[in-house]
Amino acid sequence: MDRIPVLRMGSLLLITIQVDMHDKLALQLQDDVTHRITEYGSTGVLIDISSLEIVDSFIGRMLANVAAMSRVLGAETVVVGMQPAVAITLVELGMSLPGVRTALSVEAGMELLLTAAAETAYGFDDERSQA
């Protein structure tokens, strides 16, 4: 089976999930993302799930895992474009994806990641100037 493409956009990675997920695809994706983050030194990961019609606990766990793994490597993850019906179902299922940041659209997600990156950069500057 083919893999889910991981695109590089400047300092960010963009992943658009369009197919019905299954185990191998999910494992492959986790592998790809972690490798690309180290390869490109990415500071953020955008996962666009706007075309996903359902998110069950398996996909939910995959999203949480990617976010956790990326964080360990120094990159923030934002999940964008979750459909209302999917969100309602996920809440009823008992999954609120704590620790995963979200945004309404790819643009909003990019803005979120870039502002977050800029803020950390400022923080770093401040510490240096004080020292």
Binding site: D20, I54, V55, D56, F58, Q83, P84, A85, I88, T89
Partner: peptide, 28 residues
């Protein structure tokens, strides 16, 4: 299995949220 449930629930004209809930339960 998910696709089959989607097809059947669309035929029965479930609302989008009800469809999504049933398909998610089926998937689990």
């Amino acid at each position: 299995a998910r696709q089959k449930v989607r097809q059947w629930s669309t035929e029965l004209r479930f609302s989008l949220v009800d469809q999504t809930k049933l398909i998610t339960a089926a998937s689990e």
